[in-house]
């Protein structure tokens, strides 16, 4: 067996076992009219569950729901207008006592206009932000791809203003800016069509937590132990 072979190991054996177990030859195109997201998909699977559990067309209510659910899972939530955002970010970092803050490429420059901590970028003078370097960085400031109100979830997809996945993982303090109403969706079914599977994604619902001790939730293990979310109403 060659471990580097893309079809290494027992490919044909496993496939033939599957076909034997199903009692037929290889699955043919006629057996799978529902491939992809075409309309036949819905005839094969009963998708009569709800697209969302709250009205998807009430931006204020969605923002309030997102706010509540973020708080419920121990995120610290702040709200402001676009004009207030720079000062709020600066104040949050000051309150934290942050001396350094990692920033991703593509972050709107205004967001760091009032930041007194040293902003560190991957292409900055100190060299790339490796995991080891990030371990010594106090905070990280990012945007997001979207937020899901029903579940209190932030989705990051490494797009502009979000950066690589490790950026929001290694520092202990993450400030994430959500722009409403544009980035707020009601539910998981409404979020997925807006996301590109080709991008690496991290869905974040509250700070790092564990239920491993007596099945009781405790916040704060390996990811950022403090998650601050700024909801900006455009």
């Amino acid at each position: 067996m060659n471990p580097d072979s893309p079809t290494g190991g027992s490919r044909e054996l496993v496939l033939s076992r599957i076909r034997a177990a199903l009692g037929r030859a290889a699955t043919t195109p006629a057996d799978r009219p529902e491939d992809g997201n075409g309309p036949a998909d819905d005839s094969a699977v009963p998708r009569d569950y709800l697209r969302s559990h709250v009205p998807a067309d009430d931006p204020d209510a969605l923002l309030d729901l997102l706010h509540r659910n973020l708080v419920d899972y121990r995120a610290l939530v702040h709200r402001c207008t676009p004009a207030e955002l720079p000062d709020l970010i600066g104040a949050l970092l000051d309150a934290r006592g942050a001396r350094t803050v990692a920033v991703p490429p593509g972050l709107p420059p205004a967001w760091t206009a009032a930041v007194r901590a040293e902003a560190l970028a991957n292409d900055g003078p100190g060299g790339p932000l490796t995991a080891a370097r990030l371990d010594g960085v106090d905070s990280v400031l990012t945007g997001c791809a979207l937020a899901i109100a029903e579940t209190g979830t932030l989705v990051l997809d490494a797009g502009p203003g979000q950066g690589r996945r490790l950026l929001t993982l290694v520092p202990d303090h993450h400030i994430c800016v959500v722009r409403a109403p544009g980035q707020v969706v009601a539910s998981v079914p409404l979020a997925l069509p807006r996301l590109d599977p080709a991008r690496p994604q991290t869905w974040i619902s509250g700070p790092s937590a564990t239920s491993d001790i007596e099945l009781t939730r405790v916040e704060g293990v390996h990811g950022p132990r403090t998650l601050e979310v700024v909801l900006v109403r455009d």
Partner: peptide, 15 residues
Amino acid sequence: AERMNPYTSLWTGTH
């Protein structure tokens, strides 16, 4: 028993 677990990672090949 959570509405959503704290972290979900999705990746496609290498990035």
